[in-house]
Amino acid sequence: MKTLAFAMAAVVGLFVGTCADAAITLGLSSVDDATMQFAGTGSQSTITFTNGPQGNSFGIRTVDGSPGGSATGLFGTISGSFSYSVAGITTTGSLQTAALTGTGVMSIGPAGGPALTATISGIDIFSLGSVGGLNGLNSLINLSNVSYSGSNVALLQLKNEVAAGGGVVTISYQFATPTSLTALAAAGCPTSTTYSGTISTVTTVPEPGTMGMAFSGVVLLGLGYYGQWRRMRA
């Protein structure tokens, strides 16, 4: 029976270990004089991220889920462009939503490198009064292809967890007055604002089928060892 206990503990341990995988979350905000810029043509709006005087777009302000918070104080950039079309805007009261297309490269690292780089993809965009956000509706995976050769603990964890389950980048912004997606797509001068956001990884959670298989394995092991114990007692 002791063997049965160890076998069942091993299976349950594997199951619980899978459930307990921790995700890392980095909080970011734009640095001084760095903005996200909306350039409207009347039919669409293109979004780009400009750098400040020091060549950075944002700074990492907080780190959760990683020992030591070693990425706090690092800086990064977002290159590339993202866009949405006026024809694709859905309006519900004061809420406007649209699909966001385009890709860019997010870079995070200390001065002199090496830097972590990853592909960031557009998913969706919304506006609600004076606030809005990118990938804030569904928080779907939009960070991939992470590369990093340095030794920063948090960046290494970010790289490994994105490789294992994917990453999610969300960006939020705010204007002084209500500004809809329609208004941001109007032809005219570019509109810019500061921003903040998060970079997080996806926690590994077993599929229902995997959970069933794990518990079935425990039951089968139990029946097998119980039958063996009965035969030894006979």
Rank of each mutant, 00 (worst) to 15 (best):
T90C: 11
N142E: 08
Y84C: 13
Q96F: 14
G88H: 04
L134D: 06
L74C: 11
G73T: 05
S149C: 09
A87H: 01
S130I: 01
A154D: 14
Y84F: 14
S139G: 12
V146C: 11
T103Q: 07
Q157Y: 00
I125F: 08
L116I: 11
G104V: 03
L134K: 05
I125M: 10
V153C: 06
L95Q: 11
T119G: 10
L116V: 09
L137H: 08
T92E: 02
N142I: 02
Q157W: 00
G136L: 14
I141C: 14
T119K: 03
T90A: 15
V105S: 14
G122T: 06
D124C: 06
G88C: 07
L100G: 07
S127Q: 13
G109L: 13
N152L: 09
M106F: 05
L100P: 14
V131G: 02
G133R: 06
G80Y: 01
Y148L: 08
V146A: 15
G122D: 02
L74E: 02
L137P: 03
S139L: 15
P114K: 01
L95R: 08
F75E: 11
T101Q: 12
I120Q: 01
D124P: 09
G129Q: 04
S94M: 10
N145T: 02
S147N: 13
P110C: 00
L143M: 13
S121K: 09
L116F: 04
T92W: 00
G80K: 01
S94F: 05
L143G: 15
G112S: 10
T119M: 03
I141N: 15
